[in-house]
Design a binder for these strands. Structure first.
Lengths: 114, 114
DNA sequence: ATACTTACTTACATAAAGTAACCTTATTAT
DNA sequence: ATAATAAGGTTACTTTATGTAAGTAAGTAT
């Protein structure tokens, strides 16, 4: 791959992982298997997009979905080997963000919390 | 940062770097300073989006823009220290893509190339 | 004067993301 | 029996982002 073109594998990988929310979902699942509503709450993502993105990632072989027919039904999402193999990418990303990213401003206090 | 929330620095960093095209532009600039049309050709990105994204990245302190008043004017884009510090993230990403990503199909031969 | 080059902009169409309300199956409370 | 609650979504609709193509500005070269 020279200066004038991008490796197509790299490009494809980037398109999968850098799609909006995908990286944050994978990062969240690196903490361990989780159910839908846990991810939804942690990331503040809408159900519609979480559902769509989990399906994309499952289709790419990065996420797996296990159904436990308890009551109410429990569905757990976890990473496959392919997904867990992304861990070093996120470790490096964490190093970078803690070294170089500063927050613009503190979030305003929640008026309901007082 | 516990299971129920994402580190806001990490989230902010991810939003910057995983915005569409941003990662590929940074990866391209890791090869060295380049001008607008070189990046445009290498990534097959439209001028409109490249212009927009380079401005975003310059605003985030990741990319710098140098104007050389030659003729015609030469404008070079390069990475700042903050941008170069992302190199390990992309090295890990390259490792992952070469280990786990396979291409769906070979691109059809260009009918003009024969 | 006309055409060419680089580095962009503008205008417009299409696709993706965000928001809110609703659905389905099952369980428990009244 | 009926209502309320819960998980895990889906549907309909609005807003924002992306893609495409054409146009602009400054400075030569012919």
């Amino acid at each position: 791959m020279n200066q004038n073109s991008v490796c197509p594998r790299f490009e494809k990988g980037m398109r999968i992982v850098s799609k909006r929310w995908a990286g944050l979902i994978i990062h969240q699942l690196l903490k361990g298997p989780q159910r839908f509503c846990t991810i939804e709450t942690a990331l503040q993502i809408s159900g519609r997009l979480l559902s769509e993105r989990l399906k994309d990632l499952e289709h790419e072989g990065i996420v797996r979905r296990d159904v436990y027919p308890e009551t109410p039904v429990r569905i757990e999402y976890s990473l496959t080997d392919k997904g867990r193999a992304l861990a070093p990418v996120f470790w490096e990303m964490e190093k970078w963000t803690s070294a170089w990213i500063e927050l613009d401003e503190e979030p305003a206090a929640d008026p309901l919390s007082q």
